[in-house]
Design a protein around this nucleic acid. Structure first.
Lengths: 195, 195
DNA sequence: TAGTTTTCTTGCCATTTGGCAAGAAAAAAG
DNA sequence: CTTTTTTCTTGCCAAATGGCAAGAAAACTA
């Protein structure tokens, strides 16, 4: 069970001595999940928090017509959680689903609380995650307002090209706020534009 | 200069002894702004954080076509800030504008930092504000996905009926993600439905 | 490899939403 | 109180987006 990657990830989020990071890494447990497995279901309490080491996960909910809408696509390494629901220990309103086989690190809510209490750096690490996720949400919101679907597509392609090799286009389309039909048309448009 | 209201507001956000709340309230400075004044401009650093005691404020940005889009409408009492920009001391990407004459309490970034450093309760108060704002953003996002414009309208009407007496419909429409034309049609529809 | 399922593209048409503009209503200014 | 400005409503038309369905392509299964 190699926690080197996890340790480095922790340091990348919040710079700290290796020993500290190593110690925190030790507090996580390993877990492997297969494609299509659900981490959380809507209306369930989130008992655990996760860090994704390998694979792709998405969160989704349902719109007014009962259609799935992808709210986030998680690319390793990153933390995966509904932070608000987790920290308040309230039911989440989104579903989290493995899009590929996944390797994760996990910690229970109780253990997180214990660590928060005992280690200021861990508290700071938690705050960092909160701010980062808040920031992602805000950027997404502003992107939806300020950008066309085409630009959102281009930005995602630039930032996370690997998603396009591992996640079906209909899920990406949904994440971009359009239908797979429209995304297909945008891609076609762009092909003809750029020769 | 009566800080009773501010003190009570602080307690409502984070329960604490009156003396503590009183002390924190003392750290804020009073400020009054007229209708149409801008608190922050896009791309400016946020040097201060604010608590709105009286009045209405909105935040807005511009969409792909250069049209204003209202991202939030603040109803007193509440804190008003781009928290991410403030805590990172980075330029904000939104504008904040008084929709009415406003009475606010304010504190500089430096003072906030000093208080964070010296008082755990103040730190907790700050964390509370962060979580609350994160939560508002998330709800707004999910609302945009899961609800029709009509439902968003009804919800706002129920939650903050006073906004409708103090803020022009075109701004409310923009906040709901539609044009004033569409909002007008929705209102007409509803009139005929509910006799 | 052959068969089955899922994903992706595309055409056709319906629906939704927005732009514009004109007039009514309300609010603000003088 | 009158004038001016802003806000709100409404009709007409254009543009964007989506639904549906069929076929092509790719991925998975046996």
């Amino acid at each position: 069970m190699d926690k080197e990657t996890l340790q480095n990830y922790i340091i990348s989020v919040l710079p700290m001595p290796k020993e500290k990071a190593h110690f925190f890494a030790e507090q996580f447990e390993s877990i492997e999940l297969s494609k299509n497995v659900l981490l959380f279901k809507e209306n369930e309490k989130c008992t655990n928090t996760f860090i994704l080491e390998n694979g792709y996960i998405r969160s989704f909910t349902f719109d007014k017509d009962g259609k799935e809408v992808t709210t986030n696509i998680f690319t390793a390494p990153c933390f995966v959680n509904d932070f608000l629901a987790f920290f308040r220990q309230q039911p989440t309103s989104e579903n989290f689903e493995c899009l590929t086989d996944c390797k994760l690190w996990t910690m229970t809510y109780e253990k997180v609380q214990t660590c928060f209490h005992s280690y200021p750096e861990f508290r700071e690490f938690g705050r960092m995650m909160l701010v980062t996720n808040y920031s992602i949400l805000q950027e997404r919101m502003l992107g939806m307002i300020k950008d066309t679907a085409e630009n959102r597509y281009l930005r995602l392609l630039k930032r996370h090209p690997k998603i396009f090799q591992n996640v079906p286009l209909k899920i990406i389309a949904s994440y971009l706020g359009i239908t797979d039909t429209s995304l297909s048309r945008i891609r076609k448009e762009m092909m003809s534009k750029h020769q």
